[in-house]
């Protein structure tokens, strides 16, 4: 099982380190040919506008969309969550997303960096609370019928799952706990 990490921009190394620590074979995905060998994909945090542009110029957007249609499991955090959602508020008009999670996200929905925060959240999929770091985080404003909410913070859904897609508004790759990555890897094994 090889887990690709979209490595165009952002905190991709932190994801690779986390996955590697858990025993997974994690590799960078920068170009379409890198996609061929991976069984699952992680989309990291970073700037979603930058990533959208680089997804086009690297000619990765369509091959990733095809693989997602074929059922490839995907896990997006922060900017990655934006890339997976169907509807984006306060995005750029030319910003494309993969639409694998039927949700509306508002970019920087909690405000600027001085409003960024960390907190412990309870989830429906871990025994212990998970420490969650929100950095200029997207806020989930609407949840589609077939989307499961796995955790909330400050009254909003922050960890969601639908079909082959898992999305987090926070950064499990930055905190010391590995529970969310373990959850994703376990879903690949089953």
């Amino acid at each position: 099982m090889i887990v690709g990490v979209l490595a165009l921009q952002g905190a991709f190394q932190a994801h690779i380190d986390k996955l590697t620590d858990l025993g997974a074979d994690a590799r960078e995905v920068k170009r379409p040919e890198h996609l061929d060998s991976v069984d699952a994909l992680v989309m990291p945090g970073g700037e979603s506008t930058t990533m959208s542009m680089l997804l086009e110029s690297s000619e990765l957007f369509d091959p990733i969309a095809d693989r997602l249609d074929d059922g490839m499991p995907v896990f997006g955090t922060c900017a990655g969550l934006i890339l997976l959602s169907t509807d984006i508020e306060d995005g750029r008009p030319d910003q494309r997303s993969f639409g694998r999670l039927d949700i509306t996200v508002k970019r920087n929905g909690y405000g600027r960096q001085v409003e960024s925060f960390e907190t412990d959240i309870e989830t429906t999929v871990t025994n212990e609370p998970v420490h969650a770091v929100f950095i200029r985080a997207p806020r989930i404003m609407r949840i589609g019928d077939d989307v499961d909410v796995l955790a909330e913070a400050r009254g909003d859904a922050v960890l969601v799952r639908s079909g082959n897609a898992l999305g987090a508004g926070f950064h499990p790759e930055l905190s010391s706990s590995s529970e969310i990555h373990r959850l994703f890897l376990e879903s690949l094994a089953s």
């Binding site: 921009q9 952002g10 190394q13 930058t50 001085v114 925060f117 907190t119 412990d120 929100f134 400050r154």
Partner: peptide, 24 residues
Amino acid sequence: MNEQSTSTGTPLVKRGLAEMLKGG
């Protein structure tokens, strides 16, 4: 869910944004 305590301006939150700018 319970009301959680949240913290802003912590070293992790501050460094976190720098992490997001990597490769940019």
